[in-house]
Design a protein around this nucleic acid. Sequence first.
RNA 1: GCCCGAGUGGCGGAAUGGCAGACGCGACGGACUCAAAAUCCGUUGUCCGAAAGGGCGUGUGGGUUCGAGUCCCACCUCGGGCACCA
Length: 941
Amino acid sequence: MTSANTPPDDAPKFRYTGALAQEIERRWQDRWEADGTFEAPNPAGPLAEPAKIADRPKIFVLDMFPYPSGTGLHVGHPLGFIGTDIYSRYKRMTGHNVMYTMGFDAFGLPAEQYAVQTGQHPAITTNANIANYRRQLRRLGLSHDARRSVSTTDPGYYRWTQWIFLQIFNSWYDCEADKARPIDELIDEFASGRRPTDDGRSWNALSSAERSTTVDAYRLAYVSDAPVNWCPGLGTVVANEEVTADGRSDRGNFPVFKRNMRQWMMRITAYADRLIADLDLLDWSDAIKAMQRNWIGRSEGATVHFQSTAGPISVFTTRPDTLFGATFMVLAPEHPIVDSLTTPDRKQVVSQYRHQAASKKDIDRQDDTREKTGVATGSYVINPVNGESIPVWIADYVLMGYGTGAIMAVPSGDQRDFEFARLYGLPIPAIQRPPDRELDTSTWDGAYVGDAPYVNSASDSLDLNGISGVAEAKRLTNEWLERNGRGEAAVTYKLRDWLFSRQRYWGEPFPVVYDLDGNPHGLPDELLPVVLPETDSFSPQTFDPDDEFSNPESPLDRLEWWTNVELDLGDGAQPYRRDTNVMPQWAGSCWYELRYLDPTNEQRFVDPEVEKYWMGPQEAGHNGRPHPGGVDLYVGGVEHAVLHLLYARFWHKVLYDLGHVSSKEPYYRLFNQGYILAAAYKDSREIYVEATEVEERDGSYFYNDQPVTREWGKMGKSIKNAVTPDDICGSYGADTLRLYEMAMGPLDASRPWETRDVVGMYRFLQRLWRNIVDEETGDLALLPTPADIETKRLLHRTISGVRDDMDALRFNTAIAKLIELNNHLTKLGGSPADVAEPLVLMVAPLAAHVAEELWAKLGHSTSLAHEPFPVADPGMLVADTVEYPVQVNGKVRGHITVAADLDVSAVEAAALADPKVAASLAGVTPKKVIVIPGRMVNIVA
RNA sequence: GCCCGAGUGGCGGAAUGGCAGACGCGACGGACUCAAAAUCCGUUGUCCGAAAGGGCGUGUGGGUUCGAGUCCCACCUCGGGCACCA
């Protein structure tokens, strides 16, 4: 196949072709590496160069690091990387000390699955994949400080992942101080009697097993026997965040079942309020903030206690003010009190309903008819506010996993309760008088939610009637509940604690052993890292995806030589059994930005001085708002909105509470780049065909002359539409690829890849080259005369605009401005010397290799990576004369060119005097003339 | 249903409330070539017109304004997220 840009045999020898571009690129990549051009100095430690730091503001630019997959990069992957590279290069040229590197998030399922298929150890394939990624990223010319690169799978890295786990394990959440504290301080509180034990006995009276049980209940990382998401198809448990809306695994799309199992949990719920509140500190999009708030799902309301024959039943409600309208109670079918509540005559129907609810699988749950179902238990509870006896039902629209698994049903004020009441003929008393509605609810077609005066809402001791504000009514009801011991204000969250263990092989082992009684013990620092044991059997036990009652079996369980150890943890050598779970893939990505700062430190996960320099609070952020510290710019895909970004914030906050880091948040400014989409084609059998071999004819698409259908999707091997950066670099060079990806559109928008469009940026670079270099000789060839005033003005306008665009990450419009300037030079027949230098410097962040080459041709012997970025001369941004468009009634009818400093009345006179304007006025006397100085004139006739 | 975001030429996209369509692709015409490719030059929103020029144009309908792609209200469509969450 002939490449689209194949030059003729007799082409000029030094034309900027794909071949020449690649030669230039290789040469400069080697030189940057040899010179350590992009190495960023630290204030302390092995990478310290204090002299280089003085007077240079720091900036930390971070990409979400990739999982190094076996198929390598396609052109969609580096979109964000190119953006951060351009920004980093620009910031270096504006005098910043830039932290910019790349690591690899290399634990996880695909490497393990590949290992199972091929018998190769995942470490081998992972290292090969990382090497391939490094090669591909280097070829793009990314200006990483290679010394700082890390892989989460390196024992020197995960030693500290394990250390942080132990910090969390050895902490508890002090609700009064609202922060995590070391577990030893909790033990002190128990020992000194300041904090009572659960059953009130003194600390000394407890056995050591009782003590550890007491303390373990407070730990931020704890073993729990609670409902978890068991995924037989993966052979492991997964976190709530990894379960999709239809009850399947995020990875593999296997069914997931709720089962009680003993697993590691992290008490992220303790941080729920701070994870919400501190979003206000962050420069993130409202969309991502909304997703996090939504996921945490904070609801304010009240817990209300109802009396039943089987004891008190608590419900959570966000509308305590509607308590007078509660005419029945609904329990989740799984609610433990159901058995003792059910009356003998209802036993059969209740048990039948519960069985039916339990067997409901995701397919039934997806059923969109969603008709309410439920059965009565036969029992009644007392509504505390008015003493009325109301029936208790069970229904699957009430979920055991939220609130208390029980609700008070207020049919007039809640649509679900309304539907349920209508279906089963339960009373629907109005408790508010909505505008435009009858008080008789039989005329309603749905519940009423809003501010309206309360009616039928009074007892001897609480009267809401006549109040029209929900907030006020809530407040009064909450007060009444608390005064009478019938309830209290309460907050619930959708967020659950984080299920943290996985029954897989390719992950971080837990630095934990169990004693003979089964109590967990964190290992001391000197026993870290707990290295993932070698084996040739890393296959986890997986099961029939629908086999709900299978049991997890970790690969590490099989390694008896590894699991059984004898250790002295303080009271003599004892036998212990190692924890055989591994951590989830999210663990390594919860703190990697910190390790970049000090990658080789063996004493600490990061040196405090180094951490403070790069991550500490700043005087002002990029937009002038306060900067609470953290990464200055974090670029990545939106798919991590509630997984990585929530977990990493949580870990960072624990580290902050314990004094290990100086910023409250890890990522100050977040920018979500879009995706590159690509056309994929399916034949008549619905099988994907190779996209590169599809031909377009008159808007239809053909593969081997057979018609195929087109769709747009994320690029990928599975839908046969991947284009690799290696292909594009091979045809045009990396600089063209970088420009094309940035010129396609704004960085945060998704856009379709069109290989045929790439040539536009290639032509731009070719023209740029030709304006400065003689294509025949390769020598510098500038115009002999300095730039005229028009060219100078354009240059300075371009400088000013490009700076603004670079600061705002608008690389697409920066490129457009540079092309405009270059097109102007083309018309001049080449570049004057005083334009070539600033132009090359402006191109440098975007197309770094060709800019370096041109810079060298312009006579410079050093890299331009740290050259000052051009600064616009303000005097060149204003012209002597200005052209005004003249509108008549809002339509442009003519143009006038006048002196820039002409006063308003003179501009008005000039406009009215313009022949075209006069013609379109046709003798009508203007009612009003608006002159916007320097902008335009509008004549109202 | 709720919460975000977006609708602009044939395509990707540009426009501090101030000349809509920058820049790129494609298309068309031309140069070079035996020819093609590559490269270069020119034209390119749409309709009427030979041209000059004019009409119409940023999803739809209203509004604010001297002036609206941009602000406000209502609606339509598409994309993303959440969803019997009490």
